[in-house]
């Protein structure tokens, strides 16, 4: 039981560092639009490898750590992370989510949908022009592509981060 608590703690630490590192890279590189969403890849890796009953808790924890670093509305972050976790959890029943191909496709899809959702929320709250939103959403293919490739290369690494073993399902 104590090991599980330590694992949850470690998940919080890892997710914090991944999101913070992502923020620093965004601030320091001119290619920010090409940077993958590491927090999202960690969520997909966890949702695919954790015990099913732990997935919603992991999604909440990862969303909370994201909220600690971003000015996007917390409700939008929680909605997106919980929906992604639900989707991956549901797919696990029938499909091999951790397979390279499916993992890449899911990460690419989520990598496009998540920022598109956040842009939509910002536009609705600020009362922006729908045309401007459309052009911004179409420009998100770069982050979708890089997130997909990042998940392909590092998804298994994220699922095996030190300290997370007690939360992973044993059949793997």
């Amino acid at each position: 039981m104590r090991k599980r608590w330590i694992s949850w703690l470690m998940l919080g630490v890892w997710s914090s560092w991944i999101v913070a590192a992502q923020g620093i890279l965004v601030a320091q590189t001119p290619l920010a639009a090409w940077l993958p969403d590491g927090g999202l890849v960690l969520l997909i890796a966890c949702a695919g490898r954790f015990q099913k009953q732990d997935v919603p808790g992991a999604a909440l924890l990862l969303a909370l750590s994201r909220v600690a670093y971003t000015i996007e509305p917390p409700t939008a972050i929680f909605a997106a992370f919980l929906c992604t976790a639900l989707l991956v959890n549901a797919m696990r029943s029938a499909l091999e989510v951790n397979g390279a191909l499916l993992r890449t496709v899911v990460a690419g899809f989520a990598g496009w949908l998540f920022p598109a959702w956040l842009l939509l929320v910002r536009h609705v709250r600020d009362g922006g022009e729908p045309v401007a939103l459309l052009s911004e959403v179409l420009g998100l293919w770069r982050i979708a592509l890089s997130t997909a490739l990042f998940a392909l290369a590092f998804g298994p690494v994220f699922a095996h981060l030190p300290g997370l073993t007690p939360l992973r399902t044993r059949r793997w």
């Binding site: 923020g23 320091q28 920010a32 639009a33 969403d37 670093y69 971003t70 996007e72 910002r122």
Partner: peptide
């Protein structure tokens, strides 16, 4: 932190 993980924002 002097950064924001969403590159389309400055927060």
């Amino acid at each position: 932190l002097r950064s924001e993980p969403s590159w389309w924002r400055e927060g």
